[in-house]
């Protein structure tokens, strides 16, 4: 088995949750493998020390050119530093998606994106689980890893190992990074606009998705929220259609919320959406499709058309 590497995402000197999840995913791929964490950035000693608590080995790539994690620049460094045939794990987030496909081409390895499970390794064949069609079906895939692999791992798919007993050592590989000039230059991060309601502070959310069908129907959601004393949030399609402000969107590309109660109305429950719900709220799903993935994720489900059900619920709540 090849050497396994885990790419550590970090921000403001702290490693991302994915750092501990990738260590567990690596174990699932090969329990006997030595797993090396890779930390790229500028002024990253604290992150390296943190990573060494969970990984036996940490490779540090410290350069002013890596001050902001631009995937094009990181890829150049990794191509120069990684050994041939390595298996590289990345989180399946906006950085991993930016880096992974091109990295696999430059290293001439297999690429498997958004992995949710590991079935096992048989020689050069690695059997993995992923999903297609917005999570409506799952698939087993076989990756030929004889020449290595780049694999992105879905957030939350592996329970993080919090034991932090690795006692690892940090090796400085910065000198091997090579030329880090790029045709893509980072300019700035534009922070999300703050909306009229801060849904991250809401205790009860009535959240609406594609099942609402038409902008005019939003009224029935607003009426229910008003009757319940809740705030209105939504899934991505509603923001894409410009029916609600971006600040109302729950999900990895929107807000992370932690209400007590979450009413998912006409929402299918993609992992990007569910990734924005933290703190184990009581989730009620109302969806007319009994096979919708949301029914696997909710506490309570109601198979109904929200256009008919919500007005009746509002009436009952109002008494």
């Amino acid at each position: 088995m090849a050497q396994i590497f885990a790419y550590i995402i970090h921000k403001d000197g702290v490693a991302d949750d994915s750092a501990l999840e990738l260590a567990v995913a690596a174990q699932a791929i090969d329990p006997s493998a030595s797993v090396t964490a890779i930390v790229c950035g500028s002024g990253i000693d604290a992150v390296c020390t943190e990573a060494a608590a969970s990984y036996k080995e940490v490779w540090k790539i410290d350069s002013a050119d890596l001050a902001y994690p631009n995937a094009e620049v990181v890829r150049k460094a990794l191509v120069n530093i990684l050994p041939k045939g390595a298996v590289i794990l990345l989180p399946h987030n906006t950085f991993g998606m930016d880096l992974g496909p091109g990295l696999s081409v430059k290293l001439d390895t297999a690429y498997v994106a958004d992995v949710v499970g590991v079935e096992g390794t048989d020689g050069n064949n690695l059997k993995l689980i992923r999903q297609e069609y917005s999570g409506m079906v799952s698939t087993h895939v076989n990756a030929d890893i004889s020449g290595g692999a780049v694999i992105t791992i879905r957030g939350g798919a592996f329970q993080p190992d919090e034991s932090k007993g690795a006692g690892g050592s940090v090796t400085d590989k910065s000198g091997d990074a090579g030329d880090l000039g790029s045709k893509r230059r980072f300019l700035e991060v534009v922070e999300a606009e703050v909306g009229d309601v801060d849904i991250t502070k809401s205790e009860v959310l009535v959240s609406v998705g594609r099942g609402i069908e038409d902008q005019d129907n939003l009224e029935i959601v607003e009426e229910l929220a008003k009757a319940m004393g809740a705030d209105v949030s939504c899934s991505r399609p509603i923001v894409d259609a410009k029916w609600l402000e971006k600040s109302r969107q729950v999900g990895t590309s929107g807000q992370t919320v932690s209400p007590k109660v979450y009413l998912a109305c006409g929402i299918s429950g993609s992992f990007q959406h569910m990734g924005g719900i933290k703190g184990a709220p009581f989730i009620v799903a109302i969806n007319k499709n009994p096979k919708s993935p949301i029914f696997q994720l909710a506490d309570v489900g109601i198979v109904a058309d929200i256009l008919e059900f919500l007005p009746e619920l509002t009436e009952a709540v109002e008494g």
């Binding site: 631009n70 987030n93 906006t94 950085f95 045709k183 893509r184 230059r185 980072f186 300019l187 700035e188 991060v189 534009v190 922070e191 999300a192 971006k246 600040s247 969107q249 990895t252 590309s253 929107g254 807000q255 992370t256």
Partner: peptide, 11 residues
């Protein structure tokens, strides 16, 4: 990028 933020780049 995450959190509804936007990363600006020149390419």
């Amino acid at each position: 990028i995450e959190g509804g933020n936007q990363e600006m780049n020149e390419i």
